[in-house]
C-alpha cells in the first residue's frame, strides 16, 4: 500500500510536468488548430535556460524560473511570427510540416557544439534535497516544489483565461475566429499571446523537469512533448482543465506501469489508453461532441 502511494506521488510529479507542456499544446491547438510539434523543443530550451541561469549565473531558483519562462515566451512568439503566421491561410498540413521542421531545427541546432552541445549535462541543484516521511511515504522538497509551482501556474492561467479581457478574447477566438474578428478582436495579437503563455509554461515545465530528473540533452523534449500532446488529446484538446486531467492520467499510468508491470511497456500502455479513449469518446474525456456539417 505504501509502495502504491509512493508510486502515485511519483506519477503525480511526472503528470504535473506533462501538464505544463500539455497546456501550451492545447491552447495553441484550440486557437489555430495546429499540432505545434516544436513545443516539446521549447520545453527542452526552457530546461537549458534554467541550466545556464542556475549553474552559470548562480541566480536564485525563483528568478531562474521566471527567466526561463520569459525566454521561452519570447522564443515561442518568434517561432509563431516567423514560421506559422505566413501559413495561416495555407492548407493546415503545410503548417504541420513547418512545425515538424521547426522541431528538427531546434533539436539539431541546439546540439551543435557552440550552442548547447549534443551530450547529456548534469542539472545544477539549486538547493539540497530534503525528504519528509509521511507514514512510510517519502515526499521530497523537489516534489513539493513541482506540485506547488505547477498548481500555482495552472490556477493563475485558469483565472487569466476566465476573468481577464484578454482571456475572454482568447476564448472567443478559439470558439469562432471570424466572428471574433468582427467583434474587434486583434487575432494576431491573441495568437501571439497564446504562443507566449504556452511557451512560458513549457519553459517552467523544463526547469521543473531539470531539477526533478537531473539530466538534460537537446533531444529530451521529444518524448515528453509527444506524451504531453497525447495527454491534451486524452483530456479533450482545446480544453484547459482537460489538458491537466489528461496529463496527470498519463503521468500516473506511466509510473504505475513501470512500477507494477514492466518498465519497457510504460509507453505502450499510455498510448494504448489513448487509442481506446479515442475510440470510445473521440473528443477526449472532457470534450464536447462536435456536430457534423456538410
Amino acid at each position: 500500500m505504501t509502495y502504491f502511494l509512493q508510486q502515485l506521488i511519483n506519477g503525480l510529479q511526472l503528470g504535473f510536468v506533462y501538464a505544463l507542456i500539455a497546456l501550451g499544446y492545447t491552447m495553441v491547438y484550440g486557437i489555430v488548430r495546429l499540432i505545434n510539434f516544436a513545443h516539446g523543443d521549447v520545453f527542452m530550451i526552457g530546461a537549458y535556460f534554467g541550466f545556464y541561469l542556475l549553474g552559470r549565473f548562480k541566480l536564485p531558483f525563483p528568478l531562474a524560473m521566471v527567466g526561463a519562462m520569459l525566454g521561452c515566451a519570447i522564443l515561442g512568439i518568434t517561432i509563431e511570427k516567423l514560421a506559422y503566421k505566413p501559413l495561416r491561410n495555407a492548407p493546415r498540413i503545410a503548417a504541420l510540416i513547418t512545425a515538424m521542421g521547426m522541431s528538427l531545427f531546434l533539436e539539431y541546432f541546439t546540439s551543435l557544439k557552440f550552442v548547447f552541445g549534443p551530450n547529456y549535462l548534469a542539472y545544477p541543484r539549486p538547493f539540497p534535497i530534503v525528504n519528509f516521511n509521511l507514514g512510510g511515504v517519502t515526499l521530497s522538497n523537489i516534489q513539493i516544489i513541482v506540485f506547488g509551482v505547477a498548481i500555482f501556474l495552472m490556477v493563475v492561467l485558469q483565472i487569466f483565461v476566465a476573468k481577464t479581457k484578454t482571456g475572454m478574447a482568447m476564448r472567443a477566438v478559439s470558439f469562432d475566429k471570424q466572428t471574433a474578428q468582427l467583434m474587434g478582436i486583434d487575432i494576431s495579437r491573441i495568437i501571439s499571446i497564446t504562443f507566449g503563455i504556452g511557451s512560458g509554461l513549457a519553459g517552467a515545465g523544463g526547469v521543473l523537469y531539470g531539477i526533478a530528473y537531473p539530466q538534460i540533452n537537446p533531444f529530451m523534449g521529444v518524448m515528453p512533448g509527444l506524451k504531453a500532446f497525447v495527454a491534451a488529446v486524452l483530456g479533450g484538446i482545446g480544453i484547459i482543465p482537460g489538458a491537466m486531467l489528461g496529463a496527470i492520467i498519463m503521468g500516473v499510468v506511466e509510473v504505475m506501469t513501470a512500477a507494477f508491470v514492466s518498465s519497457t511497456l510504460r509507453d505502450a500502455v499510455a498510448f494504448g489508453i489513448l487509442i481506446i479513449v479515442l475510440l470510445i469518446k473521440p473528443t477526449g474525456i472532457l470534450g464536447k461532441p462536435a456536430a457534423e456539417k456538410v
Binding site: 509527444l226 497525447v230 484538446i237 505502450a268 489513448l274 487509442i275 479515442l278 475510440l279 473528443t283
Partner: peptide, 17 residues
C-alpha cells in the same frame, strides 16, 4: 471512424506502440 487530426493521433499512437 476517427476524423482528421484524431485519426492522425491514433495512428501516431499505433506507430509508437
Amino acid at each position: 471512424r476517427l476524423r482528421s487530426d484524431y485519426l492522425g493521433i491514433a495512428t501516431l499512437g499505433f506507430g509508437i506502440i
